[in-house]
Amino acid sequence: MTGLAAYTTSTGEAFQFWVLGTVAVIGALCTILMRKAVHSALCLAGTMIILAVFYLANGAYFLGIVQIVVYTGAIMMLFLFVVMLVGVTAADSLTETIKGQRWLAALCGFGFAILLFAGIGNASVKDFNGLAKANEGGNVEGLASLIFTKYVFAFEITGALLITATVGAMVLTHRERTERAKTQRERSEERVRGKHLPPLPAPGVYARHNAVDIAGLLPDGTPSELTVNKTLRERGQIRDVSTEALNDLRALEQRAADRLERPDPHRKGGGRNGDGDRAEETEEASK
């Protein structure tokens, strides 16, 4: 990068190239060999960061930064977003639809690589110019002066392309509404209709027992099935004690009536009054 025509780069750059180049190739191989799309995306992001370092080493300072911002920052995150949208667990199927397609593809890739390498090897580049002169007034300034003079038409076409891509993405992902949007009232009515909204009544409310398998009584005396656990309800293990309760009540009334007829010889006056009160109470309760 020092003279106008150099023959070799610095040792530091060579070291960087061999170390990071190896990592970049491994990352690229992992991209195509990993089964899950998320792992592929992460490996590709690593490869792109290494490429950004290579851009910086090659004197393309602006492109190096843009590579990190646009590729690893925006494009790879967009990829990850779509991977999450499509489903992370969706691993690639390993069944081959065309027999031996994978080996043929690998063979094709190998042949293609040999072709490219032979082409580059034939070029026999001995010296290179380096960007020292071109980057004299600053890399960004040099790029800007080129973009706005020689390549200004391509630059404007690029603007049109970006707008078209934005509109295209919006058109592609837009879904037409097929039915009228529901109003807030309709939605709230939908939520309430046909369901038991408040918490279910506890067993034993208004009842004379509070065991879980005994239905609570409604104010009019009928047992409510809602008060019993759903499992018990489905098994049919509800114990109905309303008849027992009525029998108990009847027995109580009977005893009270007996006492009224044969007052206790040990307690007179007050006792009689008390018995009468209790009898009245039981009568009221039975009503």
Partner: peptide
Amino acid sequence: SRLHGNLDGQIIAFFTMVVAA
């Protein structure tokens, strides 16, 4: 771009990035 000593290659790479986005 580095081999040739001018910035045209970098411009092309820049346009490639825009088109890729």
